[in-house]
């Protein structure tokens, strides 16, 4: 039995933001497909070197592979990023030349330094160590991250109890003009090259299946009884202490009297 359960919840037909589990303690997350919708390219971000950038700087001529993740994520973000990196490195297409992969951090607390450290491991994974332009990693304000996420139909939520973002596991392929071309769901992306090629031609491809994998460490235990159990143990500890102390003192006195009597 574990209290914290990773919800690899494959929910068929979850097109709407329908993972509303707030009533059971699980944050609402979901993925609306906005295929064809334009991204707010002018939204300002900061890259891993600390420079101010916009998504527009990366759009224009090449398709974009966009990943929303965050460095402190303890669950699937690393899996998604590594799978993206592996898919990028495996195909004939070259990042930077044929398309632009970008990570946008979900976490507004993330600093450019943290971004740079995370980015370094990703660049090593795709065989381009030190080449920051090969896979930019952007951080931004909460409002700006939400602006991009909302345009993608990517619904995520901060869970203060577990101190993590609950969010879908998926990556996005954009046309060179910055429109949403395709959603790739899950944690493995074998069709990434084909999707990039289609997006490069301006094709828009809605998903056939709408399964959703959630990246969230679900903890079902609300711990409503914690305070009561703590009180029970405090009272119990007090009772045990008093019981033992009175036993020792009482017996010592009794034994001493017994000896005196001979």
């Amino acid at each position: 039995m574990t209290a914290a359960i990773l919800t690899l919840a494959a929910l068929l037909g979850s097109d709407a933001p329908d993972l509303d589990r707030a009533s059971s303690g699980q944050p609402a997350i979901g993925l609306d497909e906005h295929v064809g919708a334009p991204l707010p390219l002018a939204t300002p971000f900061v890259d891993s070197s600390g420079a101010a950038v916009t998504l527009a700087q990366y759009a224009g001529t090449k398709p974009i592979v966009l990943v929303l993740a965050y460095a402190r994520c303890a669950m699937l973000c690393s899996v998604v990023l590594h799978a993206t990196g592996d898919a990028l490195a495996a195909g004939p297409l070259v990042p930077g030349r044929d398309y632009t992969p970008i990570v946008v951090s979900l976490d507004p607390r993330e600093t450019p330094d943290e971004a740079a450290r995370r980015q370094a491991t990703l660049l090593e994974r795709i065989g381009r160590p030190g080449d920051r332009a090969a896979w930019p990693y952007l951080v931004g304000t909460d409002a700006n991250i939400h602006a991009v996420a909302d345009a993608l139909g990517f619904h995520y939520a901060w869970d203060p109890r577990t101190e993590q973002y609950a969010h879908p596991a998926a990556i996005f392929v954009l046309t060179p003009a910055g429109r949403v071309a395709e959603y790739l769901r899950g944690v493995q992306f074998p069709a990434l090259d084909a999707a990039i090629t289609r997006a490069g031609r301006g094709e828009l491809t809605p998903s056939a299946a709408r399964d959703l994998v959630a990246c969230f460490h679900f903890d079902p235990a609300l711990r409503r009884h914690g305070a009561r159990i703590q009180l029970f143990f405090r009272l119990g500890a007090g009772a045990v202490f008093l019981g033992l102390a009175s036993t020792v003192i009482g017996l010592l006195v009794w034994e001493r009297r017994r000896r005196r009597r001979g």
Partner: peptide, 28 residues
């Protein structure tokens, strides 16, 4: 002793002290 007292009481009176369905924490 105190832990087993809670389990025994829970078993008899269904307090849900360690049951997630009743807001309890089994890991505790």
């Amino acid at each position: 002793g105190l832990s087993l007292a809670l389990v025994g009481a829970d078993h008899v009176w269904h307090l849900g002290l360690f049951d997630p369905a009743a807001g309890g924490d089994p890991v505790l």
